[in-house]
């Protein structure tokens, strides 16, 4: 052993012959790179099992994969929802998801969507903002409405009407409206639970009022033209 040390031979603390190298044989090179990603295998894999049960399970698996995408539990990211191009064929492939209302009795209280109303607000705000754009563009219509508005003197009511009329004129707005309606429906559903909660509901109610005030202010500005 001691004689092996120094003198150009690699120094091993053990008898190298024990691991199968004869004296003087060249040792394999040190490997400095990771093994290949798809190494050649000496033995090819055996074919998969086939048969009626395997086929049935395969069909089941693929069917399940499609089904879970249609379940209400499949939460899509917002980016996935909007498609840049509206395709004709989309109408045929539309998926209808059922509503799913969890059994709140079984869940921790913090799970309940308290801020549902607040979350709905910015959406409706943007919707209104979008409404205002086109309404300014065709000012003739606006002026007519303003006249009507002045006659009635009831700011609130005409404002609502204003929106309604535009809804019928502008096809593009339909989508937004639908969304709002859905939100309303959701709000109604959640209201039951929220009434059990503390005064979250009231808070959001006031906020809604604020929004409304801001909007009517805008309308006033328009009226001064």
């Amino acid at each position: 052993m001691a004689a092996n040390k120094g003198r150009g031979r690699a120094a091993y603390t053990f008898n190298i012959e024990a691991v199968g190298f004869s004296r003087g044989e060249k040792l394999p090179d040190v490997v400095l790179k990771p093994p290949p990603l798809f190494p050649d295998t000496d033995y090819k894999p055996v074919p998969l099992k086939t048969g009626e049960d395997e086929d049935y399970m395969l069909a089941l698996k693929q069917e399940l994969r499609e089904t879970v995408k249609r379940m209400p539990y499949f939460i899509e990211t917002p980016a996935e929802k909007q498609d840049d191009i509206e395709r004709y064929s989309k109408r045929y492939m539309k998926v209808y998801k059922e509503e799913w209302i969890p059994d709140w009795r079984r869940l921790p209280r913090e799970m309940m969507p308290r801020k549902k109303c607040k979350k709905a607000d910015p959406k409706s705000k943007t919707a209104k903002a979008a409404d205002r754009g086109p309404s300014l563009a065709n000012s003739a219509d606006v002026l007519k409405k303003i006249e009507e508005l002045e006659k009635r003197g009831d700011g609130e009511k005409s404002d609502e009407e204003n929106e309604e009329k535009e809804g019928s004129q502008k096809k593009t707005k339909d989508g937004d409206d639908d969304g709002d309606d859905d939100d309303d429906a959701e709000q109604e559903e959640y209201d039951e639970e929220e009434q059990e909660e503390e005064n979250d509901y009231i808070n959001s109610y006031f906020e809604d009022g604020d929004d409304f005030g801001a909007d009517s202010d805008d309308n006033m500005d328009e009226a001064t033209y």
């Binding site: 539990y73 939460i75 969890p102 079984r106 869940l107 913090e110 799970m111 969507p113 801020k115 979350k119």
Partner: peptide
């Protein structure tokens, strides 16, 4: 967002 976390947790707990 807290809202999405809640939704996700609801789904996970339910399953």
């Amino acid at each position: 967002s807290l809202d999405q976390v809640k939704k996700a947790l609801c789904v996970l707990i339910h399953h």
